[in-house]
Design a protein around this nucleic acid. Sequence first.
RNA 1: GUGGAUGUAGCUCAGUUUGGUUAGAGUGCCAGGUUGUGGCCCUGGAGGUCGUGGGUUCGAGCCCCAUCAUCCACCCCA
Length: 418
Amino acid sequence: MLTQAPKGTQDILPEDSYFWQAAEQIMREVCDLFGYREVRTPMFEHTELFQRSVGDTTDVVQKEMYTFLDKGARSVTLKPEGTAGVARAFLEGKLFAGPLPLKMYYVNCPCFRYEKPQAGRLREFHQNGIEVFGAKDASCDAEVIALALELVKRCGIKDLCLSINSIGCPDCRKKYFELLTEFLEPKVDQLCPDCKGRFARNPLRILDCKEEKCQHAIEGAPSMLAHLCPDCQAHFDQLQQYLSALGVEYALDSRIVRGLDYYTKTVFEVIARTPSGNLTVCGGGRYDGLVEELGGPSTPGIGFGMGLERLLMVQKAQGAAPEVPCLYEVFVCTLGAQARLEGVKLVSELRGAGIKADLDHAARSLKAQFKYADKTGAPRVIVLADDELQRGVVKLRDMRESAEREIARDELIQFLKK
RNA sequence: GUGGAUGUAGCUCAGUUUGGUUAGAGUGCCAGGUUGUGGCCCUGGAGGUCGUGGGUUCGAGCCCCAUCAUCCACCCCA
């Protein structure tokens, strides 16, 4: 128990941390290129924020939140997703008064959901994400999607599939709900127990149900896409034109619903195919009503979240993980007390010159020092003993070529730098 | 939250059928073979409360119960 991380959490050990850093680096580079700046928000928020934004009836809010009372009897919640906190910060920081659109990104943001863990689904997970406020045009939807794809591609991931859908605005959704409800009403008895509940709360979800009898019941049901209001329809058409202009391939998938209430119009997923199955690495959409819902001025918004654990899983499964740089460029092996003293000085000089270097701190034999150097992948090893010390030289061994040469101590750093 | 599978050395796994002395292998780790040199080879060493707790039994890694964890499928989503 004591030596076991809590259920659904994970350590990122030194052997893996490089992959995370690489993904974070790519996120920063691409976002910078697209004109986004970083935002950092608290790991927990007032519970009410998520109830209002994500939505009271969603699974996330109803049964998956880490909610507790702090010592001041305030109900706070570890954030289950990234958008709500950023929207709150946008309002609290009065950023709506600045130039819009405002484009923001966040990196390695910890999120928490109390779920039964399995591969690619943890209780603490991490997201990279972006949010744009004040851009209503579909060109922004296309840019956000293109950015997501660019990120995933730069992480070396192949076999990608982009699915898009429009779930309309509250107006057309309300009308569609009525149509769907009317259609399903006579068939409620045929639905699975889950869907009987969904019928009252959110009939859209029934479309996703895998139960055979529900699939049968929804045959011939009206589709959302066929009942968008003129404005939403135009927006969706434009999005597709922009995507085509950008050369982005996409598939329409009316089953993408997104389980968070704030979504409007465009919703999308980036799915990666792997030998062990398909995985959604990125999901997002437009949320034109969110800022207003939280008490701010009517401001359109759009964004996505990208699951880092999933991204790295796919990267690994596809053999696309980046090559990890060697720990040391030079490892110094010494023999004897005097040489060791000199070795410590040498390592310090090497580091001062920006060369990654170290020497044996375990007081081991020369042979063991070499073994260790080899295991760390050091391409070069320096040997320093009394003999070299007296002659003012070091031996420099190229571990890959298994070739060794002597170099004057004074010229070593200059030699290594070129 | 529902259903199923699995927990033995750092890692991958034998051993459980049919309970029986001191629980094994490969790999990894440490050391020696070479008191000045890595990889290959040889030798040796360390490392296990057999997930945890209880029960049955003269005796449990093996049988029974509970519990925890992991994995898979749902649900949901990143």
